[in-house]
Design a protein around this nucleic acid. Sequence first.
DNA 1: CTGAAAGCGCTAACAG
DNA 2: CTGTTAGCGCTTTCAG
Lengths: 355, 355
Amino acid sequence: MAPPTSASVTPGPVDRLTIEHVANAAGVSVATVSRALRGLPNVATSTRTRVEEAARVLNYRADPAASRLAAGRSRTIAVVVPIVNSWYFSNVVAGAEAVCTEDGYDLLVLTAPSSTVRRKVVTTAAALDRRVDGLIFVDVALPDDELTELERRRLGVVTVGQRTGRVPSVRVDNVDVGRTAVEHLVELGHERIGVLGAQAEQPAHFDVPGQRIRGAEHALAEVGLRLDPSLIVSGEFTVEGGHDAARRVLQADRCPTALFAMSDEMAFGAVIAARQLGLDIPRDLSLVGVDDHDVAAALGLTTVRQRVVEHGAMAARALLRKLDGVNDRALDLVAATELVVRSTTAAPGDGRPGA
Amino acid sequence: MAPPTSASVTPGPVDRLTIEHVANAAGVSVATVSRALRGLPNVATSTRTRVEEAARVLNYRADPAASRLAAGRSRTIAVVVPIVNSWYFSNVVAGAEAVCTEDGYDLLVLTAPSSTVRRKVVTTAAALDRRVDGLIFVDVALPDDELTELERRRLGVVTVGQRTGRVPSVRVDNVDVGRTAVEHLVELGHERIGVLGAQAEQPAHFDVPGQRIRGAEHALAEVGLRLDPSLIVSGEFTVEGGHDAARRVLQADRCPTALFAMSDEMAFGAVIAARQLGLDIPRDLSLVGVDDHDVAAALGLTTVRQRVVEHGAMAARALLRKLDGVNDRALDLVAATELVVRSTTAAPGDGRPGA
DNA sequence: CTGAAAGCGCTAACAG
DNA sequence: CTGTTAGCGCTTTCAG
């Protein structure tokens, strides 16, 4: 037995496994190892195989910090969300994460709860430069000048929820979402429909509530009806907000026979409000939401489904492609939505779904 | 006017701002800049001020890849969760994220949906080594050998939800959670109580459902009652699972007058089930959950609140402290929980809350 | 197709 | 207290 050396008293840190070890093992230079492992062209097939085998045996993977420094790319992307702990955003992040992991990219989650913070994140060169290769902005309105700044820094940008026209975007057709939901109610025979949403926002191209209202109006107009503005109430896209909004609209003089909630969470609030007011769903009140939140299925909520995880994945894929040099600047991915009819909608005054 | 050079045709990438620029601007060496900016001791106050000013003016921040490579630390931590898009986990991540951002750390989200994946994440040296300085395992059981492996690699570890005894942990007293919930029901006069939970798990020290059941038994025992094993059903901690479980238990021969759901999401399922069965809450059935999910307040659900965001923040703080050299190996942070009485609990057969 | 060598930007001894 | 200098581990010309 070899006498214990002082160095072996402690298990000690793992011996740093570097590219040189692989080079030695494979009998080639470090440059060749680097090329082979990254799949670059100029490597003989036999050499590549040998190198890959050596790396596999040693369980080698390049030190990210070193590659980043040398290559000037971080193999990290950031997803910027207003808040992380909400159903919508955590699902988008989940989708993006899956794609990144698969491609060996790291995913950083950045929160920009306010436009002030967002501006700081974007502007502070150092906060992003050489730290991420690109960003996914999720429902974070990005002014033109900030986008320009990001492009100047050679950062890839993809947006989710809004369309800038300058970078790839993933979104749904919100006019269609509103139309689909309200068309369903109209077909059941509803004429007086309340809307749980939020105030229209500044940038017209990013006004989700406004677009959904527009769609609702189209659906109504098709059968010669109009949306009563007094029946549009703000529910702030939260359960509690939806609850308050529903109470308000359901206690109005001529209360609606159906409600279009722009998010399932607001719809949940409406369910609670209806029960408190002694209204039976769907007999006294029909209700349709948007999202297909996990709770929606259990609740039997009729809703316009968005595949949110998929949105995140699509955005990540678009960004990674862009970083790989594929350039589809104005790519505008419109994700599909679909009406899922469950048990909260029926003909007015009817306990059962109508024709 | 200077003639346009070919280099200025395009706006061009931002000129790489390095530590040297700052050194020149401040009239000191790069080493001094490095020390000053990192708040190391051996720097004259006047020098430090001058350097900081120069850095501020130039809007300089060290290139993370370069510091990482040179220092051997990544200033990145990873949070390992089974899934990212769930209420509980996304809130823990949110809490951790806030703390990391504040301390200038990056937060990587890693998912380990199965023990196989977890083992791979932990074992694959390259996947973590030199990429993160430490990890937070959230409700991910970590076998002793894997923990040893991580320590051998000098990675900091903190757990949330379980206690290893070897590294800092953040958790709640689950026996207490169960006792608190059931004590409340017992005090209202309930004697026959159903439990919506999950099967007991392998590692005894991490058996959340088991511990909560234990607490429930204690509460019952205090007044000479016992928990009927046939009233304990698995709800898989989801809305749908809770719905099914509640239906099962509420349709049993001698159906309980109250339900203790081990998560709010299961409680939501129970609310739906009760309504389908024509049971009024709280008149025919009292219900208490655990979590204080956003929807709980809107629903008026009585629940045992856990401050989940805070759990994530506590874990991150403990980890960062550990990385700063502060060593409190077996630190066991037991976060507070509290009963929040709302409107889903009342005396049996009573419409109003009892004494 | 492969190797040698020059950095990437920063930190960490080591002198002074 | 401050400057000099040698790398950290990898990528990338540039030769061959």
